[in-house]
């Protein structure tokens, strides 16, 4: 009797599982269409309609109308006449993102930082080392960080001023224009957008040359 009873309940479970699979399949297909197609496509439509610039990646143009980048994606600046951004192990390649993930105890981290320091000291002899903020020699998480701290922009003024001949006051006001405060005075940190800053600086250099 016992054996037969187990057998019966087993087959009724298989039946229940099969019918649940069949019902599950029907719901799954509907939800794939609803959540995987209708929802993202409706979102895209509304986004493009209401906020086309933001939805398209916040691309910014120079004064002659050419797109020079995205406000949100940092660029690599090697020219010492321009402001430098944060360390990026991916060289600001916007097709990817990420970093080397060096642990605090990884010897490679200290080697990389010492190399950054040597380069910094060579290019910026006017500035004492204890003025250099840590964000300029640390790798951002995304490798695409478009910002530096206001202090990190200010310590680059002596170098840029002596290379370009642009006055310290002028450079300070460029930094002020490219600085954003905390959102709603509360969220996030004050920051300088390096691309916008260099865009303004480049146009100023061009004007001075003429």
């Amino acid at each position: 009797m016992d054996v037969k009873y187990t057998h019966q309940s087993l087959s009724s479970y298989t039946g229940a599982a099969l019918s649940a699979l069949w019902v599950g399949l029907r719901f799954s297909l509907i939800l794939i269409v609803l959540c995987g197609m209708i929802y993202p496509l409706v979102s895209t439509g509304l986004a493009q309609l209401l906020f086309p610039w933001q939805a398209g990646g916040s691309l910014i143009k120079n004064s002659s109308g050419t797109v020079v980048g995205s406000e949100l994606i940092g660029q690599s600046f090697q020219d010492p006449k321009l402001f430098q951004g944060r360390v990026s192990s991916i060289e600001y390649d916007g097709a990817g993102s990420g970093s080397m993930n060096y642990a605090p105890s990884n010897p490679q981290l200290m080697l990389r930082m010492q190399a950054s320091l040597e380069k910094w000291e060579m290019n910026n002899p006017e500035v004492a080392l204890n003025q250099l903020p840590i964000d300029l020699i640390s790798n951002s998480g995304s490798g695409l960080d478009p910002h530096i701290t206001p202090q990190a922009a200010e310590v680059q003024i002596p170098r840029i001023s002596s290379l370009t001949g642009i006055s310290v006051q002028k450079l300070n006001s460029l930094i002020d224009d490219a600085t954003t405060g905390r959102d709603l005075g509360l969220f996030g940190e004050p920051r300088v957008n390096v691309l916008k800053l260099n865009l303004a600086l480049q146009e100023l250099i061009a004007v001075t040359k003429q």
Partner: peptide, 13 residues
């Protein structure tokens, strides 16, 4: 260097 911001390795400004 001026490390008063704390540990900024792997973080965004």
């Amino acid at each position: 260097v001026d490390a008063s911001q704390g540990n900024m390795e792997g973080k965004e400004v």
